[in-house]
């Protein structure tokens, strides 16, 4: 039932490796327990991202090389990966839970008729089973999922849950994967333009000012944006604020939003529901502002200010001048 390899799907984004893939290579090495960690990449001819991947020390880098991967659609990618998996079924395949990972992985899963757990927050082995940890519905409930009877075991894992660590002690073997590129003209990528999501890209923000229901007013949004600008950061929100005209779902932090890992997080008028806090566990310094001294958000804060969010914002702006 599959060999003893863990494959990490390396995603390419704007001609670079999407950073989650490095995080997943490090994680795979940590849980491998003797299993071989293989980084799998589908890249066009002139791209040589294996030199970047090497730094993180997988045991092997397996390359699907074809010029047509530039602008390949989900169907073509899933088809190519399927051929490689069929030749040599691994124990597990780990995808980043990015848009692309979430689109290609389930197509591959359907071809393989195996299990896939999306959006995991943790993974580890229990014997031969990969335990897949993810939040589930309900009041802060987590669940463990396994796929006991089929291989490969498939997961997508959230960005920024694990830290990528450079490991030059291993010289990965570089191998070409055998497959044939089957063109699928039913869907054609006509153009792809990088976008600067400066206002919304919370994933990599070093400073985040987070607004919750208790802090919402047009004025406070403006003040929070000013403070974010001053500190070189971004404004994020808890879920109730995604209904407000200033924000959308992509500004949302938490279980059904984005997982963040800033050096500094300032929570304003956020109570600290588990669905919010799972998204901010990796924040380094945390300041929280809440009128209620007993709000759970203070349990994960370094500094607490019991009082009004607007007053705090104004004081910060006033004193930073």
């Amino acid at each position: 039932m599959g060999n003893q390899e863990i494959w990490v799907y390396v995603e390419i984004n704007n001609l670079m490796v999407e950073p989650t893939s490095f995080q997943l290579i490090t994680k795979a090495k940590q849980i491998a327990n003797g299993r071989k960690v293989v980084a799998l990449i589908a890249e066009p001819k002139m791209s040589h991202l294996e030199s970047d991947i090497k730094e993180y020390g997988p045991d092997e880098i397996r390359i699907l090389r074809d010029e047509r991967f530039r602008g390949a659609n989900d169907e073509e990618l899933a088809d190519a990966l399927f051929q490689v998996v069929k030749r040599n079924t691994p124990n597990a395949i780990i995808f980043p839970a990015t848009v692309r990972g979430r689109s290609v992985a389930p197509r591959l899963q359907a071809k393989l008729q195996t299990g896939l757990t999306a959006d995991c927050l943790d993974i580890y082995y229990d014997g031969d089973n990969l335990v897949q940890v993810k939040p589930t519905y309900g009041d802060g409930v987590m669940c463990n999922i396994i796929c006991p009877d089929k291989r490969p075991q498939m997961v997508t894992v959230r960005p920024n849950i694990f830290e990528a660590k450079v490991d030059r002690t291993i010289k990965p073997k570089i191998q070409a994967a055998e497959f044939e590129f089957h063109e699928d003209a039913r869907s054609e990528v006509e153009a792809e333009e990088p976008v600067d999501h400066t206002s919304t890209d919370l994933t990599n923000a070093k400073v985040i000012i987070a607004l919750g229901r208790g802090a919402y007013s047009e004025k406070n949004v403006e003040l929070a944006r000013q403070l974010a600008e001053k500190l070189g950061g971004k404004v994020g929100v808890s879920r109730p604020l995604t209904d407000k005209p200033e924000f959308t779902h992509s500004d949302q932090i938490g279980q059904s939003g984005t997982t963040v890992s800033p050096d500094l997080l300032i929570n304003l008028g956020i109570s600290g529901a588990v669905q919010y806090t799972v998204g901010v566990e990796k924040a380094k310094k945390v300041i929280s502002v809440n009128t209620n001294r007993d709000a759970p958000i203070f349990d994960l804060s370094d500094y607490g200010y019991v009082g009004d969010a607007g007053a705090f914002l104004e004081a910060m702006l006033g004193n930073l001048e």
């Binding site: 335990v131 669940c143 463990n144 945390v286 994960l300 804060s301 607490g304 200010y305 910060m316 004193n319």
Partner: peptide, 30 residues
């Protein structure tokens, strides 16, 4: 279904020791 849920639980929370700031917003900010 190929996947089975083996366990459902409340995650353990890591708590920090919070330092409460002055009630005066200006002092807190400083």
């Amino acid at each position: 279904s190929q996947t089975i849920v083996t366990k459902v639980y409340a995650p353990k929370k890591e708590t920090k020791q919070v330092k409460f700031l002055s009630k005066k917003a200006g002092d807190a900010a400083k």
